[in-house]
Structures are given as C-alpha cells and as structure tokens.
C-alpha cells in the first residue's frame, strides 16, 4: 500500500486520532499554562520557595518516558496516568519563565508603580505580568512544542493519539502509519511554535522590546 492509498483508506482514523491529539494537547497546555503562571507568580513573590528550584530542575531533566513509567503504578493506565506526568512536565518551563520574567521587569517601573499608589495586585496585573509577557510566552512555547510531541508517548499507556499510529508502524514494520503519525505531530509542533512566536512578537512590541 502506498502512502496515498493508506491515507485514503484510513482517512477517518487519522482524522480522529489527530483531533484526539489536539484535544489532549489543548487540555494539558491550557492547564499547564494556568498552573505554571500561578506557581511562577507565587514563587516570585515568596522567595522562601526558592528551595524548590533543584526539585524543579531534576523533574525538568527527567525524560518524559521515565515519568510516564513511574506514573503507571500510582495513577494507572489511561488518561490520568498519561496526562498527569506530561502536565507536570509542561508546567515547569512556564513556571520558571514566569518567575524569571517577573524578576526581570525593570525595577524602576515597579518602583514608579508602587510610588504612585498602585496596590500590589494592580502592580502585578497591570505592570509586572504585562512586561514579563514576552518571557512568559517563550516559556509557554517551549512547553507547547514539548507537549505536542511528547503526547505521542501516551500511546504506550493506552491513550489514543497520533502516537497510536507511530506504535502501529513500529509493531507492523509499516512505514505508512509511522510517517503519517510522526509527520502530523511534527507539523502540529511547528504550527504551535509559529503561532506562539506571533503572539510573542506582538507582546514584545507592546512592551517596547524590539525583536
């Protein structure tokens, strides 16, 4: 079967798996973004949490497949066991960039904002987060690209995604599903990357940084 014939024959399955892949990505990315920014803000405000940094670094350096393997005995096979470790991994770059982005905001701006009588919350929302946005978005981009490709691994623990095609390809020594599965997830990763680059550039222009 040629690649074209394979695509025609299994078109519905491919589409279905692609949608599932995108959904898995969407859920984990949005969740990771919200939690990542939230934890990042908290660890920026409370320097007492700095002791967490080495823990974060170790988690960051651990391969995803290892995290998945560790999660199975605790969280079982299926969505929960697959998503939780990815989710944790997705949080890290966003959280780190939020903390360093906030710390990197021009201290003069922060002082001016406080000196003019903005409340701490207003300073955070209207001054600090906006000016840290390019750095935070860069973290989100790292996280997004990683999640899109790593979601293929969840096929190992029974979650359907483009990874399912890749596994089939490996199991049957069939290049067609292998190429389609990996190709589509690569295209998705590039698309997501480019989309966030555009948003990043907008944010940079907004805060007066020339890219």
């Amino acid at each position: 079967m040629s690649l074209l014939e394979y695509t025609e024959f299994f078109g519905d399955t491919i589409l279905d798996l692609t949608i599932k892949h995108i959904l898995l990505f969407g859920v984990s990315f949005i969740g990771a973004s919200i939690l990542g920014v939230a934890i990042g803000v908290v660890s920026y405000r409370f320097s007492g949490l700095r002791f967490l940094t080495p823990v974060v670094n170790i988690l960051q350096a651990t391969p995803e497949i290892v995290l998945l393997a560790i999660s199975i005995p605790f969280l079982g096979i299926g969505y929960v066991g697959a998503l939780v470790p990815l989710f944790i991994k997705g949080i890290l770059p966003i959280m780190q960039n939020t903390t360093s982005g906030l710390a990197g905001v021009d201290p003069n701006i922060k002082e001016a904002a406080r000196g003019m009588g903005m409340s701490e919350l207003t300073v955070l929302l209207r001054v600090e987060l906006i000016n840290a946005a390019p750095v935070i978005l860069a973290g989100m981009r790292v996280s997004a690209v990683m999640l899109v490709s790593v979601i293929t691994l969840t096929a190992y623990i029974g979650v359907e995604s483009l990874g399912t095609l890749i596994l089939q390809g490996i199991a049957r020594m069939d290049a067609n599903p292998l190429l389609i599965g990996s190709g589509l997830s690569a295209i998705l990763a590039i698309a997501v990357n480019q989309a966030i680059v555009i948003v990043e550039n907008l944010a940079m222009r907004r805060v007066g940084v020339r890219s």
Partner: peptide
Amino acid sequence: LQLRRSLGYVIQHVGLFPH
C-alpha cells in the same frame, strides 16, 4: 495607597510604563 496617590513622585530612571 491614598497617601501615595496624593504625592507626586519622580524618579531618576523615569520608570514610564513601556506598554
């Protein structure tokens, strides 16, 4: 906050909000 809003404050590095 009320106190600060009632005092004008100018700093050396200006600190205008770039956004």
